[in-house]
Write a protein that binds this DNA or RNA. Structure first.
Length: 609
DNA sequence: GAGTTTGAAACT
DNA sequence: CAGTTTCAAACTC
């Protein structure tokens, strides 16, 4: 960071300093300081201003302590000796924790930069605290609490996914609460955490465990190991992914669980930046690290809250996607079952009979799923493939809205419905029929088969789909479904995720938003002269912003019936189109900018005097 | 809500 | 691979 040398102030005349501090200019500058304003800045309100509305009850929840106690890092200064102590502690100071600790962290951040650089701030502790705080903000949301406690879990045996025991309610279990986000995940594979709910963002195909795996070996010298809490929100939205590599990670995860320690994932792409080179690592600005981690944590909160809202039917338009199965004879263990097909457990509102698609039958579910996948490796893959250049063709009526290049993977086989009813999977998914369809008398309002042959559904797409069908879907490598796990994605040399361009099906609007946001923030960065954020690091942020995590929010689900994420559910597109994510980043950057100006003016006055 | 229709999934 | 059966959602009344 281009912080002016501070030795000037160390040698200054105390009298001069006093004069300076009493001067109006100094007062003005001091008012620009990030220190005091930040101290008075209520973080909760900041989130509120970002349209990240959490019920106020979050601050009064006694569960606050539970999560605080789940901190993994060595910074246990705040961890009480017992759960009871935790509760006692936090019941007496619920909301202040969020504000004070956050602001304290920011103060540390700023102070750490203003002071001698030898005083390396404890960024780990800071981030750990922040992550706890932020996660608490949503995880102990009153809704979330209900959600998490809806299905009691065994807090001892599992570190991921679904708990086996569902009999005894777990109230104060840190693990249970923390795992609540994944409660409804079909934990077919320990590290292939399914979408937490059918109501969850159906297909955020982000497999952070994959990153963890790839980065574990490289992380030994990580200067800024990440608090394990950041794992939570991410996995809350991870899609079920099965591949051979999962077994390895599964074992690792189980080992971790068996040790009773939830391994810090150290996996976030954000903190993996520039870790391949020790030199580069030394160049990483602590503020940059803080910023990146904060962004990731913030994102986690978005997803966690999103899960909660959808689960409790507050999704507005998204409610239509929260369906319940009604299986009678399949035991919800076949693809007939929408829940099973979507990779989620059945829940209370389901009307199924003899349902085995529940956490207590986890082993059966996993075995069945693998059996189905042995027959058809793409059985749980998304049925609809959207090209990255999909552009909604908006017509006069609602039914004329169709992703120009989105098509059903296998095509339909309608005989009587003319592809005009929901019997047709293409129509149900809101996509037009394609060359792959064997339908008769196709009149699909989203695009008829005969018309699609010359439409924007490119020849490559056709080739992919045709080849896919020709192989009877026994080669999962192609076509690349939307929900391809990051585990299969190429990881760059510096352990950073490659951009979403490697994926099919990123939403065009989301992409546009990301790019717009990127330009905006890159511009801001350049103008604020954040010297330590090198161009490469800026590119890292750029990649982060364009990561699949961002772009796949609008992806399709394994069950094409739950395809789209409603506009208002996307954490990046709320608040009238300006993302909270963006605003949060801008907020952090503005703090940094203010600090730079403060440093500049202070040094200038010091030099003058 | 019951019965029918439909097409995907599963089976042979 | 094709034909048949099973199944559950969609649909109709």
């Amino acid at each position: 960071m281009d912080t002016p040398p501070k030795n000037v102030s160390q040698t200054e005349n105390p009298v001069s300093k006093l004069k300076l501090e009493n001067s109006p200019v100094f007062n003005y500058i001091n008012s620009l300081s990030p220190i005091k304003p930040v101290r008075s800045l209520p973080i909760a309100q900041t989130f509120g201003s970002l349209s990240y509305s959490s019920p106020p009850s979050v601050f009064t929840s006694p569960h606050v302590s539970s999560h605080k106690g789940s901190r993994f890092k060595s910074d246990h200064n705040h961890v009480p000796a017992s759960v009871g102590d935790e509760e006692a502690l936090h019941e007496t100071e619920p909301p202040q924790i969020l504000q004070n600790e956050c602001t304290t962290d920011l103060l540390k951040m700023c102070d750490g930069n203003v002071k001698q650089k030898s005083e390396t701030p404890d960024w780990d502790a800071m981030i750990s605290d922040s992550s706890d705080i932020l996660i608490f903000d949503s995880m102990y949301d009153s809704e979330a609490s209900r959600c998490f406690l809806e299905r009691p879990s065994d807090s001892k045996t599992r570190s991921l996914g679904v708990a086996k025991s569902t009999l005894e309610p777990v109230i104060n279990s840190n693990d249970a609460l923390r795992r609540g986000v994944r409660r409804r995940c079909l934990d077919f594979d320990q590290t292939s955490v399914a979408s937490s709910s059918r109501c969850v963002v159906p297909s955020i195909g982000l497999h952070f465990n994959a990153i963890a795996l790839s980065s574990k070996d490289n992380n030994s010298g990580n200067e800024y190991p990440l608090s394990g809490n950041t794992e939570l929100g991410l996995q809350g939205s991870i899609t079920p992914v099965l591949n051979s590599q999962d077994n390895v990670r599964e074992n690792e995860t189980r080992e971790d669980a068996g040790q009773g320690v939830e391994e810090c994932p150290k996996s976030l792409a954000l903190v993996e930046l520039n870790q391949s080179s020790p030199k580069k690592k030394r160049q990483v600005s602590p503020l940059h690290i803080f910023l990146c981690k904060s962004l990731s944590i913030f994102h986690n909160q978005m997803l966690a809250l999103q899960f909660t809202r959808r689960k409790f039917g507050q999704a507005g338009e998204g409610e239509s996607s929260c369906k319940r199965c009604n299986c009678k004879r399949s035991k919800c263990l076949k693809l007939y079952c929408e829940c099973f097909a979507a990779g989620v457990y059945c829940i209370g509102p389901c009307s199924c009979v003899d349902c085995f698609n529940k956490p207590i039958h986890e082993d059966i579910v996993m075995a069945t799923r693998k059996q189905i996948e042995s027959r058809n490796p793409l059985a749980f893959a998304p049925k609809v493939i959207r090209n990255s250049d999909s552009i909604m063709e908006v017509g006069d009526d609602a039914t004329s809205k169709t992703p120009a290049s989105a098509r059903h993977k296998r095509g339909c086989n309608c005989k009587k419905s003319n592809c005009l009813k929901k019997y047709c999977e293409c129509y149900q998914s809101g996509v037009g029929c394609s060359i792959n369809c064997r339908c008769e008398g196709c009149k699909n309002a989203f695009g008829r088969k005969d018309v699609s042959a010359g439409s924007s559904f490119t020849s490559m797409d056709k080739e992919n789909e045709t080849s896919s069908r020709g192989r009877t879907e026994k080669q999962p490598s192609t076509p690349m479904p939307l929900r391809q796990p990051l585990a299969q994605l190429p990881i760059s040399s510096n352990n950073m995720l490659l951009t979403h361009h490697h994926l099919h099906g990123a939403s065009g609007s989301s992409l546009h938003m990301s790019q717009s946001f990127r330009r905006q923030d890159m511009s801001l960065m350049s103008h604020s002269k954040i010297g330590t954020i090198t161009e490469e690091r800026a590119e890292n942020i750029e990649n982060l912003i364009e990561s699949p995590m961002t772009n796949m929010i609008n992806a399709v689900s394994p069950n094409s019936k739950r395809v789209s994420l409603p506009m208002e559910l996307s954490p990046w597109r709320r608040n009238g189109g300006r993302s909270c994510y963006c605003q949060f980043l801008l907020f952090l950057l503005s703090l940094h900018t203010i600090k730079i100006f403060f440093d500049f003016f202070l040094s200038a006055f010091n030099s003058l005097i």
